[in-house]
């Protein structure tokens, strides 16, 4: 796949709700494939019921440790998955990485105004901390019934969806990913959706998004922040999944 020849690392800084280990199908290991490393607080908990009931300073301490003490090795891309909001985790990761170079943020939304209003805040956050915005991904846009193949708008874009917002705010729209029941299932079982359903409309969309992200950032640079606001759900994350079969 597109990221296949690159070394990629994924850092999950959603301290209270780490989803990455489950989606990657990882149990206590930190390498999915030879060229993909993952770090998350999920690996440090002794049971799936363990809650991380921490206030800001403690969360910031762990993020610092993740950046300083994890042996990331030589990587081409570091992708950071953040929790919803514009608070401690977001400020800290930007602050701690300010000495290196952050290529920018990918912002995830759903089509409704209720979600877009949070995303505008996220965009303002990026402006405030001078974080470049690579673009916006609209997730869950439309649902195609597997039986009758008709499309329904489950989350209606009443104010024009991400497209209109991007035009108004002058940020690029990286793509739209339709709701596909298979995405959630793949995430739950830790499979790569892109290799399970490579020809589906959602997979095509993910691939074109990855392509746009790669064109947008120079390959020399190595850090990509993945932010989402209110909608930090399973499918939103998946476009960062890559085909686990390395190409020879």
């Amino acid at each position: 796949m597109i990221f296949c020849l690159d070394m990629v690392a994924l850092l999950d800084i959603d301290i209270c709700g780490p989803s990455v280990p489950k989606m990657m199908g990882l149990e206590g290991e930190q390498y999915v494939e030879e060229n993909l490393g993952v770090m998350s607080v999920g690996f440090l908990l002794s049971s799936p019921d363990d809650a991380v009931i921490w206030r800001g300073p403690k969360k910031n301490g762990l993020i610092k440790q993740f950046l300083r003490d994890v042996d990331w090795g030589e990587i081409d891309y570091l992708i950071v998955d953040t929790p919803p909001g514009t608070s401690d985790e977001h400020l800290s990761i930007v602050q701690y990485l300010s000495a290196t170079h952050i290529d920018g943020a990918v912002i995830v939304t759903t089509p409704q105004e209720i979600s877009l209003q949070d995303v505008r805040k996220e965009i303002n956050f990026c402006h405030k901390v001078k974080l470049p915005i690579i673009g916006v991904v609209e997730n869950m846009s439309g649902f195609v019934c597997p039986k009758c193949k008709n499309e329904s708008q489950i989350f209606p874009p009443t104010t024009g969806g991400a497209e209109k917002m991007c035009q108004n705010l002058n940020v690029s729209l990286l793509g739209k990913v339709p709701l596909d029941p298979q995405i959630g299932k793949s995430c739950d079982s830790g499979q790569s959706f892109l290799s399970e359903a490579p020809e589906s409309p959602a997979a095509l969309s993910y691939r074109s998004i990855i392509q746009s992200v790669k064109i947008n950032i120079l390959p020399l640079h190595n850090c990509l922040l993945h932010m989402s606001n209110c909608v930090n759900m399973a499918p939103g994350f998946c476009f960062l999944l890559f085909d686990p079969k390395p190409q020879d």
Binding site: D49, A51, G184, C187
Partner: peptide
């Protein structure tokens, strides 16, 4: 929660939060 395992996993942690507090 939503029905997915990923979301249910977070609610398990939320249950622990309720128990602890």
């Amino acid at each position: 929660t939503t029905p997915q395992a990923v979301s249910v996993g977070d609610v398990r942690r939320e249950l622990t939060f309720c128990k602890k507090t």
